[in-house]
Write a protein that binds this DNA or RNA. Structure first.
Length: 598
RNA sequence: GCCCCAAUAGCUCAGGGGAUAGAGCGUUGGCCUCCGGAGCCAAAGACGGCAGUUCGAGUCUGCCUUGGGGCGCCA
C-alpha cells in the first residue's frame, strides 16, 4: 500500500550505501513498526552491517561489533534521509530505522483508497498466471463427513485468496467414483438393497450402505470372493454393473452438489477417477517401455516402480510405487499419473497445479510426481501437494467412513445453524423470520469454517461441538459482530441525515491511538492477501480479519462517531465505512458472509 | 527398521532469523446515564531437552524425548 514511499526510500538508501562505501543492500524489506500506537515503516541494518563486517575483516583482519555498526549505519542513514515527504519523523534505534508516518495524511489516503476500491479493496493486479487447485475429492458411495470438510473449506478459501491476489484460478474437483469401495457398495446393494432408493438424506444413506458392506465382509471374509468377482465384471464393463454404477454414482454426485451449494462452494472443472483409469494404464505402459516400471505380471506380481533404486538412493525414501495391480485393475497411483498430465493438456499455461489432499497421502504424491519427473515430464515440477492434517474426534478417535465413526456434514451444518438461530432469537428478537434464517446461516457456517482456516494446515484439528459452536472470542461471529456494528453506526448516521461524504475527509484533527491502530491494520490488507497467496496460508487472512475486528471494537469503545464534532464525525464515518469494507472483504476471502444485522 | 509431520501460558492457537514472544478460552478484579454488553479495560501465566550455524535462534541444522501419520497391489 505504501509501495511508492518504500521505493523512494530504497532508492535513497542504495545511494547512501554507495556514497559511504557500504555493500549494496539489494531489496530492502519494510515491516510495520511492531509497537502498539506507532504507525510507520521499519527496516534494520543488521544484515548490511554483518556483510560489511565480513568485508572489513577480509581486508584488515579487524573484527566489527555488528550491533554497534548497525546502529551507526542507521543513524547515518537517518541523517542522510532527513524527513521524507509525508513522514512525521525518522529515528534510528538499536540498529533499526523507523520512519513514522504523518498520520493525518496517511489516514486520509488509506481511507479514501478503501472507499474508492470498495469490494475490490485489497485485490492485486492481474498476474496473467493460471493456477489449478484440486480440492474436496469426495468419494461417491460414501458419507461426506467432517473429515472431508477441512480440505473442502480450505481449498475454497485458498482459491478465493489466489483469485483476489491476481491469479487466474481453476477450481478442480476429483470425485473418487470408482475403486474397491464402490464395488463393495454395489455388491452390498445388489445382495441386500436391490431396488431401494431413499427420497431424502441420500448421502447419509449411501454411507450407511457402505458401512454395512464392510461389517458384512468383516463378519464373513468368505464373501470377499463375491466382491472380487464383481470387480472383474466391472472391469469387463458388464452392462448390468455399469448401469447400476452410473445410476447410483449420480445419487452421490447430486448429494454433493447440495452440500457444496449449502457451503457456498463451486467448481470449474470435474475430473472423475473413473475416466482416468484407461489413460492411466497407457501411462503405465509407457513407463514399462521406458524401462522405468518393472512388469512383474508374468510371474504373478504387479507393475512396480522402484523409485529409490532408479535414483540411486541408499535409504528408503520414495520406496516402491505399485503402478498397476497384478490383475490389471487400476490403482489411485495409475490414475494420478494420467490425471497430472491431463491437467496440463487441458490448461497448458498452468504455472502451478496444487493438490489439497490429506497428509496421509503424502508419500503417494511424492511417488507419482517423482515418477513423472524420472519419465521426463517437466510438469512434475509444477505439481505441488498441500497436505492437510486430519480432523479427529475428542479422545483421538479417527473418523472413518468404513467404521461409520463420523460426524456427518449435514448434521453439523444443521446443528450449527440451529444453535446460531437460538442465539439470534435471544439477542435480536425484532428480526423477521427470513432475516433470522439468513443471519443464522451466516453465523453457523462462519463458526464452522473459521476454525478450519485459522489453524496451520499441518496441525491436527480435534473437532468438538463446543468449540465449533462457540460464538465468543477468536471466532467468526466476533468479526461478524464488529461488521454489524459498523453497519449500525452508518445506519444511525443516515437516519440522522448525516450522509457519508463522497469527498475524502481531511482527518485534520489529532488522531486517537485506537484510530491509528485501526487504519494501520486496514492498510495491511493488500500485502497480507499477497502473502497468503504466495504461502498458501488462509491463516494470514483469519488473523488479519480478527485483528481488524478487535481494533475496530477497541476504537468503537474509545471514540464516539455520530456524536463527535462535525469535522471529526465526517472523517470517522468514512473510517467506519472503510473498516466495514476491510472486514467484509477479508471475510469474503474466507467464504464467510458478513451480515448487516445479527 | 526407514521416511514425513507436530511440540510455545492450565486449555486451544498466533508469532516474516532481529526491538518488549501475542491472542482467545478459563481464573481474578474492574467498566461508560454515550453510536448494539455476542463488548471494553486490567492482572497472573509460556518457547520439550542437548549441541551446532549465525553478529543475533521460539524461528535454521543435527541428535534425543514425547505424540501422530506413512512404508508393493487401500484410498
Amino acid at each position: 500500500m505504501f509501495a511508492a514511499e518504500e521505493h523512494a526510500i530504497t532508492t535513497k538508501l542504495s545511494a547512501f550505501c554507495a556514497e559511504n562505501g557500504l555493500p549494496d543492500p539489494g531489496k530492502i524489506v519494510f515491516l510495520p513498526i511492531p509497537f502498539a500506537g506507532h504507525w510507520g515503516l521499519s527496516t534494520s541494518f543488521f544484515q548490511l552491517a554483518a556483510q560489511n563486517a565480513r568485508l572489513v575483516k577480509e581486508r584488515t583482519g579487524q573484527p566489527t561489533n555488528v550491533q554497534q555498526h548497525a546502529q551507526e549505519i542507521a543513524e547515518k542513514a537517518a541523517a542522510y534521509l532527513g524527513t521524507p515527504p509525508s513522514f512525521a519523523r525518522v529515528e534510528a534505534v538499536r540498529g533499526y530505522l523507523n520512519l513514522y508516518f504523518e498520520p493525518n495524511e496517511f489516514a486520509r489516503r488509506v481511507v479514501a483508497t478503501v472507499i474508492e476500491a470498495g469490494d475490490s479493496f485489497g485485490s492485486g493486479a492481474p498476474k496473467g498466471q493460471r493456477v489449478m487447485v484440486e480440492f474436496s475429492q469426495p468419494n461417491t458411495h460414501k458419507a461426506f463427513h467432517v473429515g472431508h470438510l477441512r480440505g473442502t473449506i480450505f481449498g475454497d478459501a485458498l482459491c478465493r485468496i489466489l483469485e483476489f491476489a491476481g491469479y487466474d484460478v481453476v477450481r478442480a474437483n476429483y470425485p473418487g467414483d470408482i475403486g474397491l469401495h464402490v464395488i463393495k457398495w454395489l455388491w452390498n446393494y445388489m445382495t441386500r438393497h436391490a431396488g431401494e432408493r431413499p427420497m431424502k438424506d441420500i448421502t447419509q444413506w449411501m454411507g450407511d450402505v457402505y458401512a454395512e458392506a464392510n461389517r458384512r465382509l468383516e463378519e464373513n471374509p468368505d464373501l470377499e470372493a463375491e466382491v472380487r468377482a464383481l470387480y472383474a465384471r466391472w472391469d469387463q464393463r458388464d452392462p448390468e454393473v455399469v448401469a447400476l454404477w452410473e445410476e447410483t454414482r449420480q445419487w452421490s454426485l447430486d448429494g454433493f452438489e447440495d452440500m457444496y451449494r449449502a457451503l457456498g462452494i463451486h467448481f470449474d472443472r470435474y475430473y472423475f477417477n473413473s475416466t482416468a483409469e484407461h489413460p492411466g494404464k497407457q501411462v503405465v505402459n509407457e513407463l514399462i517401455e521406458k524401462g522405468i516400471a518393472i512388469d512383474e505380471r508374468p510371474t504373478g506380481g504387479a507393475v512396480i516402480v522402484k523409485i529409490d533404486e532408479l535414483l540411486g538412493l541408499k535409504k528408503d525414501k520414495y520406496r516402491v510405487m505399485v503402478a498397476l495391480r497384478s490383475d490389471n485393475t487400476a490403482l489411485y497411483a495409475t490414475e494420478d499419473l494420467a490425471l497430472a498430465i491431463q491437467k496440463f493438456n487441458d490448461y497448458p499455461d498452468l504455472v502451478k497445479s496444487l493438490y489439497i489432499v490429506d497428509v496421509r497421502q503424502s508419500l503417494h504424491f511424492q511417488q507419482v510426481f517423482k515418477t513423472l519427473e524420472i519419465a521426463g515430464y517437466s510438469i512434475a515440477a509444477k505439481c505441488i501437494h498441500i497436505p492437510y492434517e486430519i480432523v479427529n474426534l475428542p479422545g483421538n478417535v479417527v473418523m472413518s467412513s468404513r467404521e461409520g465413526t463420523v460426524v456427518l456434514l449435514e448434521l453439523l451444518i444443521g446443528e450449527a445453524t440451529a444453535r446460531a438461530m437460538e442465539v439470534v432469537r435471544e439477542k435480536n428478537p425484532n428480526l423477521d423470520a427470513a432475516q433470522m434464517q439468513s443471519v443464522a446461516t451466516a453465523i453457523g457456517l462462519g463458526a464452522l469454517k473459521f476454525p478450519m482456516l485459522a489453524r496451520e494446515i499441518s496441525k491436527v484439528v480435534t473437532f468438538d461441538w463446543e468449540t465449533a459452536l462457540d460464538f465468543n472470542g477468536q471466532a467468526a461471529p466476533y468479526i461478524q459482530y464488529a461488521h454489524v456494528r459498523c453497519c449500525s453506526i452508518l445506519r444511525k448516521a443516515q437516519a440522522e441525515g448525516l450522509a457519508i461524504s463522497r469527498e475524502p475527509s481531511a482527518f485534520d484533527f489529532p488522531l486517537h491511538p485506537t484510530e491509528i491502530q485501526l487504519i494501520d491494520l486496514i492498510s495491511r490488507v493488500p500485502g497480507d492477501v499477497q502473502r497468503a497467496a504466495e504461502e498458501y496460508k488462509t491463516l494470514h487472512i483469519t488473523n488479519l480479519a480478527f485483528e481488524l475486528a478487535s481494533a475496530f471494537t477497541t476504537f468503537y469503545d474509545a471514540c464516539p462517531v455520530v456524536k463527535a464534532e462535525a469535522n471529526i464525525r465526517a472523517a470517522r464515518l468514512q473510517l467506519v465505512a472503510a473498516a466495514k469494507q476491510a472486514m467484509a472483504n477479508t471475510l469474503a476471502l474466507l467464504g464467510i458472509t458478513a451480515p448487516e444485522v445479527m
